[in-house]
Design a protein around this nucleic acid. Sequence first.
DNA 1: CTCCGTTTGTTTAAGTTTCAAGAAGAGGCT
DNA 2: AGCCTCTTCTTGAAACTTAAACAAACGGAG
Lengths: 164, 164
Amino acid sequence: MNTAPARWLSDDEQRIWRSYLHATTLLEDHLDRQLQRDAGMPHIYYGLLVALAEAPQRRLRMTELAMQSKITRSRLSHAIARLEKNGWVRREDCPSDKRGQFAVLTDAGAEVLARTAPGHVAAVRQALFERLSPEQQKALGEIMQIVAEGLQPGDAGADLPWLR
Amino acid sequence: MNTAPARWLSDDEQRIWRSYLHATTLLEDHLDRQLQRDAGMPHIYYGLLVALAEAPQRRLRMTELAMQSKITRSRLSHAIARLEKNGWVRREDCPSDKRGQFAVLTDAGAEVLARTAPGHVAAVRQALFERLSPEQQKALGEIMQIVAEGLQPGDAGADLPWLR
DNA sequence: CTCCGTTTGTTTAAGTTTCAAGAAGAGGCT
DNA sequence: AGCCTCTTCTTGAAACTTAAACAAACGGAG
């Protein structure tokens, strides 16, 4: 229950918020379609492969991968099951913690990434970076950094030197 | 087929893009949870009720509602079916076009909106506007406007009733 | 008027995500 | 050792989204 006077959004704020909603849903749909068509998987799954490709030994613990990707472990479990069925990822037991599992990028997975990354990058570039001035790009980065930090306090300053 | 040299993202661009992905997924999850808890529906469904509430006669043709909300007609069809089951929306035949359907906000739907809007606005405010300077808010609006326009050319400032 | 391509909205099935519950190991405490 | 609690990851069912196929109605051309 909230006794404070419910403050609505100003006209400016409403415009900004709606632009945000439109742009983010359109962009997500756009990239999802692009990747579904060219790589046979949705955007999030692609992100999982990227995270694995960048990790040492091409492998990550399930929990760490889930956190990096901002998804629940449950969702990750299903997702990895699917990627495993595609032969792009394989699971390995963790020797030091018998509860643990590693998700490991297979050669086939790396190959899919190598084949589809250029097209995806091009799509991102064309939909976002090519349309924004350098100042706007910089502002966007700062804004999104602030928003993310606000919603997930604690993972920030750790490895983000540019935020001070 | 693309013969151009596949240009990867620069370090700066990568940081910006990752911040974007993190922030947008976190914010979407955050608002989805908030609305699921307080209003019993996901964010998109809430947006449909808002669109109807703002429309003349509290009603919109399915196609128009789908376009305003940036979703497919198929998805809308399912969504309205669910909202109808909740008693928040009802369908009405269009007299002038026998294929057409109106989605109409019911009193119960309006009541749900009135009850839950303040909490939702507060969540948006707290997660976004309270953390950004006026300049950043302005920049965000411009950036998102550009991105949306790029992905859906033709619906720009043209018809935005909320634009007053 | 009939034909033909388009628009409107729904439906089915397959895939994805969420939620709640649960199995199993880790780790501490007595 | 036994017990308790937390963490890790998985499972199954329900909800949601997507893609493709579809029926019905529209509307223009011949």
